[in-house]
């Protein structure tokens, strides 16, 4: 298993090289002028040209790419053109917010999504099933920012229970968590329900019942465990999406996450920050996927055996 993890971590290296290349290349296709960004609009053309030359911006693309990679190997993600701060530090300053937001809503989504999904599957075609799937449909249909605003109106404005913006304490996160978890609950509920309905009909579930096993254990030990595979995949993908794709939520709740940083950097053509953000998010995403793959091994001994063999 350790070997498998190590191999997967080594595979990160080519992945990052390719990601940096693609991002760097795309950013290069659009004209940008770092000298102007750094020195301001009032700077003289000579000064700008001198700054560009100093940054090595006039060098060919491939030279700049190799130089960037070389710096990256030394743990240097570069300096922001706009603020002059280290990219790594500016991303890391915002990273805890993003991770807290993502982790909290994924946990909520997993717990409620799977529980409601099990309920819907076990009580198929009854009130619980219809209520659960209807709820999922509603949660999936409303855009998150709208749900967020409605929650703010009810819980912050009218009731005054929870703060509507900022990141001071856990209570600041409750509304953003609920807002983003809504969509996750919906997708996890549907996936759990479908997958469990399939595994509940399997012969080994009947074998477990024929042993005289209690229905609750039959469902959780025998049926659910084998139904979790696609559910975990969805959880991993949701988590990945959460890392960079929560700009709307961050905007609604005025959270300073990586998503907002990425968006403003793209808008101002602050290339080092954009590439830095994407590299860090990509690493996180691959790590999440690694965890998902390891979890597969715990569910399916056949997959685990394959990991061990390698």
């Amino acid at each position: 298993m350790g070997k498998f993890v190590l191999k997967r971590l080594l595979a990160l290296i080519p992945t990052i090289l390719i990601i940096v290349f693609v991002v760097y290349f795309i950013m290069d296709l659009t004209p940008s002028d770092p000298g102007h960004l750094i020195l301001g609009q009032m700077a003289s053309d000579e000064a700008v040209a001198a700054k560009n030359a100093e940054l090595g911006y006039n060098d060919p693309f491939i030279v700049r790419y190799v130089r960037y990679i070389w710096a990256l190997c030394h743990g240097d993600l570069g300096t922001s053109w706009m603020t002059g701060k280290s990219v790594f530090e500016s991303v890391m300053a915002r990273f805890p917010v993003t991770i807290t937001l993502a982790a909290g809503s994924v946990v909520l989504g997993v717990v409620f999504g799977i529980l409601l999904g099990v309920l819907a599957a076990v009580k198929q075609y009854t009130f619980w099933d219809i209520a659960g799937t209807t709820l999922a449909m509603i949660l999936a249909s409303f855009p998150a920012f709208w749900i967020g605003m409605m929650l703010i109106i009810v819980f912050s404005l009218k009731l005054g229970w929870l703060p509507s913006y900022g990141t001071g304490s856990i209570s600041h996160y409750i509304l953003p968590w609920i807002t983003t978890a809504g969509g996750f609950v919906a997708s996890q509920l549907r996936m759990t329900r479908t997958s469990l309905l399939e595994s509940i009909r399997m012969d080994y579930v009947r074998t477990a019942r024929a042993k005289g096993q209690k229905e609750s254990i039959v469902i959780f030990r025998h049926a659910l465990r084998n139904a979790l595979m696609p559910v975990i995949t969805i959880v991993g993908m949701n988590f990945g999406t959460m890392l960079g794709g929560t700009v709307t939520i961050e905007t609604v709740f005025t959270l300073n996450g990586v998503g907002t940083l990425l968006l403003t950097s793209i808008r101002s053509k602050d290339v080092p920050v954009v590439v830095g953000c994407i590299v860090i998010l990509a690493v996180c995403y691959t790590l999440v996927m690694l965890v998902v793959d390891i979890l597969y091994g715990f569910i399916d001994p056949q997959i685990k055996a394959r990991y061990l063999k390698r």
Binding site: M202, T207, R221, N226, P301, Q302
Partner: peptide
């Protein structure tokens, strides 16, 4: 082939 739970020894 299907009567045993694939995830349990």
């Amino acid at each position: 082939m299907t009567a045993l739970n694939p995830a349990i020894t």
